[in-house]
């Protein structure tokens, strides 16, 4: 399908990776933990090790959650863009297959969020 237009309609994506000054956009969501309202987005270098994402980036968004301290990171399961995913902690985002505008989600077994 296409836009109905009075003339040519050029395709001008505004958020190509080239516009992020050497970074790529990566979003991270913690399943079932909605006190942090939405998946959070970060501009990150493709060469950043996955361990740095876990150790330095994700806590900025998610450490205020009362269940954060209880997370057993060995038990955490991950998805990358909707597929099950076992990250290599030492490898870079790029080497882990994480691209521009990828979404990483994590599940913390036994920690279900704040519900009544």
């Amino acid at each position: 399908m296409a836009v109905t237009a009075i003339g040519d309609y050029p395709v001008l994506p505004r958020d190509g990776v080239e516009n992020f000054h050497g970074n790529q956009l990566v979003a991270v969501g913690w399943d079932h933990h909605l006190m942090i309202d939405a998946p959070m987005a970060f501009p990150l270098p493709a060469g950043m090790p996955f361990a740095a994402l876990v150790g330095e980036v994700i806590p900025v968004a998610y450490s205020p959650h009362p269940e954060w301290e209880k997370i057993d990171w060995e038990a955490v399961t991950w998805t990358l863009d909707g597929e099950a995913f076992v990250p290599n902690m030492e490898a870079s985002l790029e080497e882990n297959g994480i691209g521009h505008k990828s979404v990483i989600r994590f599940v913390t077994p036994g920690l279900d969020g704040l519900w009544g």
Binding site: A38, G99, K101, G113
Partner: peptide, 24 residues
């Protein structure tokens, strides 16, 4: 902001994605 849940699961954010011209 993507703070809306699945219609049948109010504990889980609803994620949808499309690919267009090589971008998500």
């Amino acid at each position: 902001p993507m703070g809306f849940t699945e219609p049948d699961d109010p504990t889980q954010i609803s994620y949808r994605v499309s690919e267009y011209n090589g971008d998500k």
